[in-house]
Design a protein around this nucleic acid. Structure first.
Lengths: 227, 227
DNA sequence: AAAGCATAAATTGTCGACAATATGCGCCTA
DNA sequence: TAGGCGCATATTGTCGACAATTTATGCTTT
């Protein structure tokens, strides 16, 4: 298997654990978007002191799930069309770059692994039709692999640590359980093929289109909710 | 004047103040690259407790100036050719994107301000020839304005908060006091002209070239030191 | 009754001490 | 003498309490 990125490492400290719990809670909407974060309340709820909690809050701010104001506290971010657009504008560019670099730096073994992954996801998806979690996880896994394949630590950090939780939050809370499933699989296939052919330019282009399509999909959902 | 980005806001808390001090110390090399960070030592040195210090360390990690390992402590990052390349690869892309977006979103007033800024820097640079600080600051200021002009908060955050201190660290510690000064000014002029003409594609291209030139300049310096 | 101010409550920021973990040293063994 | 084990030391992680700041409340004033 591939070496897990620090972002995926298992929690060793209390702050790590509570971070993961709160992260999941925010992404899944258990802690409502826009709601105020109360340190004393969360400390009681997770049964630890404020020190590790504040450490966790600092990292939540880092991945844009909360916004803090000095002496005034923190709030969960609110989702908006403008925010989604800004986020995906960036993603298109960064993941495009990641593809270009992956075409240069991924080993043949890594490429083979990703292909196996895709086949695996496809079959498990056929078996469990409709269960969107697997699509969600599978899609993320594909993107993770390509990003890691870029071998650029700064790029990896930004995409996997700082932007992806927010991306997931949009998808989960807007109920993106995927009519786009099979199309996405085909697009993934095309991207890994371009990378395998060491055609960075094409891989870049395909990834940008792939993400743009995904963005339009979510925008549509947002509009429907707005009206 | 333009609204300062959160990154530039004045410190209100003790953690903010010590962060700025340590940030400067690391960027300027007063705290050596690669050296270990001792929390008790820094706490004594800046005469505060470890709580705000740890808050500051969390943010230093965020802008890639230190690397922390759970239960083992933090080290100042080490500079390397590979790291420089990865950093500038990203910068070329992100600031290119910033230019493209700035061409769409900057107001005429903001563009006028940047032009005044350039003229101002040019004259003050002529007056104080050789004093590289002004070039350094001026260059940063120009880039900041364009980035802010993109109006994409995620992009602004990444470039201004998370990558620029490291960029400065490379420039300062490798003694980039600028034979490239006048050429950089011309390039800045060309970029703002493209933005003024609402030619995002050209602005993108010019910025990428501008940063690539800057990177080659630093690479040269790194090679000279290595041999 | 609405606006403004003073006070009270609650929240965030900071502190010093303790617990858990990692680092360094000396000793033992081969 | 080199390598490994065990203990002493030092550092990081966590805790509970206090200080500083903000937010909420209620009173006064026009």
């Amino acid at each position: 298997m591939y070496q897990a990125h620090p972002a995926l490492r298992q929690p060793v400290t209390a702050a790590d654990r509570v971070l993961q719990e709160i992260q999941r809670a925010i992404v899944d909407g258990d802690i409502a978007a826009g709601s105020k974060i109360s340190e004393p309340e969360l400390a009681r709820r997770f049964d630890l002191s404020r020190a590790p909690l504040r450490e966790a809050l600092a990292r939540l701010e880092r991945c844009h799930l909360i916004e803090r104001i000095p002496n005034a506290g923190a709030r969960v971010v609110t989702l908006s069309t403008a925010g989604l657009l800004a986020l995906y504008q960036l993603r298109e560019n960064l993941e495009g770059l990641a593809c270009k670099l992956a075409a240069e730096h991924m080993t043949d073994a890594e490429i083979t692994e990703v292909r196996q992954l895709l086949d695996q996801h496809l079959s498990s998806q056929r078996v469990r039709e409709g269960e969107s979690y697997y699509q969600e996880a599978g899609d993320l896994d594909f993107h993770y692999r390509v990003i890691l394949g870029s071998k650029n630590s700064y790029l990896i950090n930004i995409l996997c640590d700082e932007l992806y939780y927010l991306v997931r939050m949009y998808r989960v809370q807007l109920g993106m359980n995927g009519p786009r499933v099979s199309r996405a699989f085909d697009e993934h296939k095309a991207i890994i093929n371009a990378i395998a052919n060491r055609d960075g330019e094409l891989a870049d282009l395909l990834m940008r289109r792939h993400i743009a399509a995904s963005r339009r999909n979510i925008e549509l959902q947002l509009e429907q909710m707005g009206t």
